[in-house]
Amino acid sequence: MNAPVFSVPDTIGAAARGLPARGGVGLKPEHFREILATAPDIGFFEIHAENYMVDGGPFHHYLGRIRERYPLSIHGVGLSIGGESPLDADHLDRLAMLLARYQPESFSEHLAWASHGDVFLNDLLPVPYHAGTLARVCDHIDQVQDRLRRRMLLENPATYVEFAASTMAETEFIAEVVRRTGCGLLLDVNNVHVACVNHHRDPYAYIDALPAEAVGQIHLAGFAQDVDAAGEPLLIDSHGAPVAQAVWDLYRHALARVGPVATLIERDNDIPALPVLLAEAHQAERLMGEALAPSIARGFPCGACA
């Protein structure tokens, strides 16, 4: 059931090619001019879809020029795939228009809900994991992939609470969504770290439990620290700090399982100068290179045989 419907060829090859296995950064208006003036060596840029759902002006002016020079990831934050409400057909149409205009190499959204009825809450809210929510999330992803005529990547969430109603582990839920819908995964390694600290789980086992072959992109970000009512650490996915060492370590583990894959440095608050973000993206590329090195070494004997 739920045979992938996005096998219709893309009108151009960007989506089929996918993002390069390189580091990328979020595109911020404060960096528009600098990017065009300095042409930094970076694998790709990512935008939040909703920020560009405007008629014209500087956002489209700069994005058009930057997209001509770099691969692009479009990342939605407002589709509310985990919502009880039906998907917003108008919003899906706007997304389809945006994707048609910029032909991004990748489109991703979240395993979360963000709106209820006609109220938009502007946050990625948690979903209980059971048969009912599984069916609903899969149905929504089928609709998205049908409408956009492409495979989407689904991002694992950073959560602060769990639900008594849940009957499945988050990894089990995500793996089943991938199996049923054919969607890919956006593995947010910071979210894995945050959620696993918050729920006292093993982040390495979490990554091992996901279908590695489905991972089409990785996100890295910084978090803020708080404590829960019992004084235990509670991490907040703030996107307002550099990537933490624990997240780099976990990223190494993810690379060993997944192989080199497009990796975004996400920064939405306290945005630093562009070179600071580029340096983090280049750090991700160095770790990709290290992850690749052993397999190249393994390949040498064969090469020598030839």
Binding site: D123, Y160, V161, E162, H199, D228, A229, E232, L234
Partner: peptide, 26 residues
Amino acid sequence: PGLTAWNGSDPERRFAIYRSNVIVSL
């Protein structure tokens, strides 16, 4: 209702993170 935490701590404190995210971001 229906929220839990691994250590049995009061989920209201954890839920407050979401409230803060929503209100502060807006």
